[in-house]
Write a protein that binds this DNA or RNA. Structure first.
Length: 565
RNA sequence: CGGGGCGUAGCGCAGACUGGUAGCGCGUUUGGUUCGGGACCAAAAGGUCAAGGGUUCAAAUCCCUUCGCCCCGACCA
């Protein structure tokens, strides 16, 4: 491709709308342009890179035995009512009516559609297992679109769904996708960390996320320094510290703490450490108040609470409920004397005495012994894990990191197959419900994650596997006829070997071409100039290295092929 | 949805406090000189100053409302 014939609008300045490197570079290198918040046009260079990622995804899905289909992006409302997810996802779905005044939505995901399809088309155990996938645009009315393609209202996703006759089969289907994902991200040149994950709105029994480690990542995770354990913070467990054995606490004692409400205020006022305090949170579980206790220096993890309460709906209590339940204004709740269920973080067993709210205005209690002075319904791991916590598997210290979620695999179970009656007849002629798994890759997000993980001061550094072109061919002086001829010949010779190049034939000064070549970051740069041609040579350089090599023109094609193989 | 920041030429920004002819750099067009790391000279085009309303003799500038974009948060009493 000739630069002058395509559309690669590079930018010298950083657009003020972009915050993180990958977003800045996608705009500066002319890969994408914004239409409005969370909506982007792919320009030729960005589209080519996207297609290469898609191709890797497709090849690996096919290799894993998955079947490609293409489902509609526009869905009638009824199918979402059928699964009961219309209400769950209504705020995230773009909703509209057709001319018959029929309610429609743009699909944020496709469990409903694919399960309906399979329910009608597959009837026998002989047809199972099946994994069906598509690469398609998804629509989500995100609360806050962010960072260019990272979180957009419209994005390309590879979504796959497996249907199995039994749980052993699901295990195999899941593992096949897991392995395919590992290969996909490896081929994309990404270093990913696989973490245990929360299943969230999707439901199901277990799941793993594929995370690209990056400071700009939206997800927090911990990884063990001693073993392979790693988990999303929404999920991450921790081993409680050893119990403190000695000392019976003095009797419970109420002290005045006028206007001190927060942990920090009370701790400073009473000269105790925050971890000696108990943070008491009032929640509504199925609209009934419950108390949740975590150490004063800890954050409650609502995902963990929800799991501990077996998925019953929870939400934080409003001020009125808190006052009614505790008999005190906000900031003075404590476990002693509460007559509602009390769920406590396991770490609170560590200390024999604590400081907590007294359920009375402007007062806290000291020498609180949970076993003696309160009735705890149950202990769970409820606090959010963090740097330095002990690994739940091996007890070693854990590190906290941030990551970009590029892939997610779930074992779904029968949640959807039951609703849509996705059933088959087994060998004995009995009707059985299929067991499902679902597997997603954010293709557009993966593309940006590649740039986030592979760039330098000068611009993008494309891994050869996803680079939009194999090489930049710079004709330094387009007035020099021989340069142009040699460059054209090289371009077609390389093209004949399946290596597409970008020939910079613009009437620009060499500096501009060098800068732009670094910015768009193709793996190789081939410079054709009057100077090197005097020796019948061209200069070849890898993007990520400084070293340049002069190669005779006649050997250039072989040399490039070797460098890229 | 709450908080904060920002909207002035294609991009990056100044001008606003203290109201009075809308500017700078890059880019674009034309001509010339240049040609291995974002050249130089000359000329030119390009703006409803986000939108609407108000104050004023006069508004990019002061006031009000709305919209858009970006960031943080949306749970910790």
């Amino acid at each position: 491709m000739h630069w002058s014939k395509t559309l690669i609008p590079t930018l010298r300045d950083i657009p003020q709308e972009a915050e993180i490197p990958s977003h800045q570079l996608m705009l500066r290198a002319g890969l994408i342009r914004k239409l409005s918040g969370g909506l982007y046009t792919f320009l030729p260079l960005g589209l080519r890179a996207l297609r290469r990622v898609e191709r890797i995804v497709r090849e690996e899905m096919d290799r894993a035995g998955a079947i490609e289909v293409l489902m509609p992006a526009l869905h009638p409302r009824e199918i979402w009512d059928q699964s009961g997810r219309y209400e769950v996802l209504r705020d995230v779905m773009f909703r509209m009516r057709d001319r018959q005044d029929r309610e429609m939505v743009l699909g944020p995901t496709h469990e409903e559609i694919v399960t309906d399809l399979v329910a009608h088309q597959i009837n026998s155990y002989r047809q199972l297992p099946k994994t069906i996938y598509q690469i398609q645009t998804k629509f989500r009315d995100e609360i806050r679109p962010r960072f260019g393609l990272m979180r957009a209202k419209e994005f390309i996703m590879k979504d796959a769904y497996s249907f199995d006759a039994d749980w052993e089969g699901v295990e195999q289907s899941y593992q096949a996708m897991y392995n395919a994902y590992t290969r996909i991200f490896e081929r994309c040149g990404l270093r990913v960390k696989v973490v245990e994950a929360d299943t969230g709105a999707m439901g199901g029994s277990s799941s793993h996320e594929f995370m690209v480690l990056a400071d700009s990542g939206e997800d927090g995770l911990v990884e063990c320094t001693g073993c392979a354990y790693a988990a999303n913070l929404e999920r991450a467990e921790r081993m409680p510290p050893a119990n403190e054995s000695k000392g019976d606490p003095a009797p419970l004692c109420e002290v005045k703490t006028p206007h001190r409400r927060t942990v920090e205020e009370v701790a400073a006022f009473l000269h105790v450490r925050p971890e000696e305090m108990i943070k008491t949170l009032i929640y509504l579980c199925e609209e009934q108040p419950v108390a949740v206790l975590v150490p004063g220096n800890r954050e409650l993890n609502e995902h963990k609470l929800a799991r501990a309460l077996e998925g019953r709906p929870i939400r934080m209590a409003d001020e009125e409920t808190v006052v009614k339940t505790t008999g005190a204004p906000l900031g003075f709740a404590g476990p002693a004397g509460l007559r509602i269920p009390v769920y406590a973080d396991q770490e609170l067993k560590t200390l024999r005495q604590h400081v907590a709210g007294a359920n009375r205005a402007d007062a806290h209690v000291i020498h609180l012994n949970l076993a003696r002075d309160a009735s705890v319904t149950a202990f769970f791991d409820l606090a959010t894990a963090r740097e330095g916590d002990m690994c739940p598997r091996c007890g070693a210290s854990m590190r906290e990191k941030r990551g970009i979620e590029v892939g997610h695999v779930f074992k779904l179970g029968t949640k959807y197959s039951e609703r849509f009656q996705a059933q088959y007849l087994d060998a004995e002629g009995r009707r059985q419900t299929m067991i499902m798994g679902c597997y997603g890759i954010g293709v557009t997000r993966t593309l940006q994650a590649i740039i986030e993980q592979s760039h330098d001061e000068q611009g993008i550094v494309w891994p050869a596997t996803v680079a939009p072109y194999a090489a930049s061919l710079l004709v330094l002086n387009t007035e020099h006829a021989e340069s142009l001829i040699v460059a054209e010949q090289l371009a077609s010779a390389l093209s004949a070997c399946g290596l597409e190049t970008l020939l910079d034939d613009r009437d620009e000064r060499p500096g501009v071409k060098f800068k732009d070549a670094d910015l768009i970051g193709l793996p190789l740069r081939i410079v054709v100039s009057e100077r090197s041609l005097a020796e019948k040579k061209v200069e070849i350089k890898r993007r990520q290295e400084q070293a340049k090599t002069l190669i005779p023109v006649a050997e250039a094609v072989d040399y490039v092929r070797r460098m890229l193989s």
